[in-house]
């Protein structure tokens, strides 16, 4: 199972805080086991940096099992490193070769300012969700769960969209730093459920409006987002959101 240990060179973006200009620094990562995850490799490098009296590379991670969406780094120009359907925390070092130089950068987007090193501020995503990413129900004032049947196909498709972990890789990968895949996933999920119908138009309009205000770019249908999405959320959902939006502007225009 375990292969030979590797020696790697890392070029890592270091930035003290949001105001700092930042720079690349080079570190050696000796004796890396192919069984390590990418983040465990960084843990090991960090222990070394601390031992040498430096400050460790700050990076976000939490669940380390690919579901919380916290980890966020661009590895060799690709968000999460480029293994299909995989977050950085689940990417393992066996995909690299002895002697490789790996460039590690934070998500780059105006709407995701850097907090420190590889950690970015993704609260813009929060505000988009707060604008309309919900169904307005009050706790307790709801019908029996089986009172509203949902066709299995709709429910399954909604689940495909709802799987989004909100990591922001779609924004990081898009040449325009567009958040369309993220927003589309939420809009699609809720518009596919019968429970989401009453607020369908209002939701689409509000979320798109907020997305624009946060300073994300626009979709030019390159498909990069879909290719790096760790949950493999389909570009179809962007088309679906466009449809939802068209419906919403027509309806709101006629009112």
């Amino acid at each position: 199972m375990s292969g030979e240990a590797m020696n790697l060179t890392l070029r890592v973006w270091r930035q003290d805080d949001a105001e700092d200009a930042g720079r690349f620094e080079t570190y050696n990562a000796p004796d890396i086991s192919p069984d390590m995850s990418f983040l465990e490799m960084l843990d090991v490098v960090n222990e070394g940096i601390i031992a040498d009296g430096g400050e460790p590379i700050a990076f976000d991670s939490d669940c380390r099992e690919g579901i919380c969406g916290t980890c966020s780094m661009v590895i060799n120009g690709v968000a999460h490193g480029g293994q299909q359907g995989t977050t950085a925390c689940q990417l393992h070092m066996r995909h690299f070769r002895d002697g490789d130089t790996i460039t590690i950068e934070p998500w780059r987007a105006t709407a995701f300012p850097v907090h420190r090193d590889l950690i970015v501020d993704r609260t813009s995503f929060e505000r988009i969700q707060q604008a309309g990413g919900f169904i307005s129900v009050r706790t307790g004032s709801v019908p029996d769960a089986n009172a509203t049947p949902v066709p299995k196909e709709d429910s399954d498709l909604a689940m495909d969209a709802a799987q989004c972990i909100g990591c922001g890789a779609c924004v990081a990968a898009c040449k325009n730093a567009s958040a369309m895949l993220f927003v589309a996933a939420k809009v699609s999920h809720l518009s596919l459920m019968p429970q989401g119908q009453p607020e369908r138009e209002r939701r689409a309009l509000a979320m798109v409006q907020q997305m624009d205000e946060e300073g994300f770019g626009n979709c030019t249908v390159t498909g990069s987002c879909e290719a790096v999405c760790p949950k493999e959320i389909s570009l179809d959902f962007i088309a679906r959101m466009n449809r939802e939006y068209g419906r919403a502007i027509l309806k709101s225009g006629c009112n």
């Binding site: 129900v137 769960a145 049947p149 949902v150 399954d156 909604a158 459920m193 429970q195 989401g196």
Partner: peptide, 22 residues
């Protein structure tokens, strides 16, 4: 029992049978 009702109303895409029920 109330939890399931609550979550379904929030739009949680629970697994369903072909009849549309949970």
């Amino acid at each position: 029992v109330d939890i399931i009702d609550q979550c379904a109303a929030q739009g949680v895409p629970f697994a369903r049978e072909y009849g549309g029920l949970l």
